[in-house]
Amino acid sequence: MADQFYLFIQQLFNGFTLGSAYALIAIGYTMVYGIIGMINFAHGEVYMISSYIGFIVIAALMMMGVDSAFLLITGAMIVAITLTSVYGFSIERVAYRPVRGQNRLIALISAIGMSIFLQNYVRVGQSSRDIAMPPLVEGGWTFGNPDGFEATLTYMRVVIWVITIAAMIALTLFVTRTKMGRACRACSEDLGMTNLLGINTNFIIALTFAIGAAMAAVAGVLLGTFYGVINPYVGFILGLKAFTAAVLGGIGSIPGAMLGGMLLGIAEAMTAGYLSAEYKDVVSFGLLILVLLFRPYGILGKPEVEKV
């Protein structure tokens, strides 16, 4: 009986970790949609690129003799966040602003094109094979029944949760308490009016892209080092699932993205653990359909006036 409990706890741990990744990446999708009504299909690639940046920075630091896991991860995150924010800023100018206001399909194709470009850019630069890194933070707690089932909680998982929660709190504070954050919210509610208040909405939009990218970068570095293996295509599946999570939680709503991400991660872990890994995706997408049937705007979503 106790074994069942520990197994459940273990799957919960797995779910939270996966959910953290989905939540962080989902934030990017939801913020961009909230402000300009567009799905940024190139967003998953930000996760992939920051994983690579993380690997490269950590490898470089290790060569310089740094071996504290704390410093390595912090260093990787600072560089990844900086670079991906710049990237997020510029991708908006290059791929999306020129086609803003035109047919939505054009923006969609532009985004998908950007995604393919990035995957192959990294592939050509780095090779399409998996790159691996030895675990940085080892060890963890085990508890449970040594004769039956033992749940393991690795330290790295805890690191991921703590940093994810910190990032989400930071973002929430930014959005609710700071001037820029309020401007972001105003833009997502009424872009035209915000312009009429004298605020440069183009800058706010670019800032939104940058913030979304930074969140994905946190996920990319953390989970890249956690799983230890990356290739140019990891962003694709994760991006797709994170997008699903954003819709599940209510696209356009930041708390929705966080909630949707966690829910999806836990649902997947539970399904893979108790049913079979094969049904994981069936359950995830089935959940999405169910929620949308009864709450078409997602769990925390609100009915929106059509954005122009």
Binding site: R182, A183, R185, A186, E189, M193, I199
Partner: peptide
């Protein structure tokens, strides 16, 4: 065109 999701205070902030 006030920001209905924001409070009076936040609207005035804007």
């Amino acid at each position: 065109r006030i920001f209905s999701r924001m409070t009076v205070e936040e609207n005035l902030n804007m």
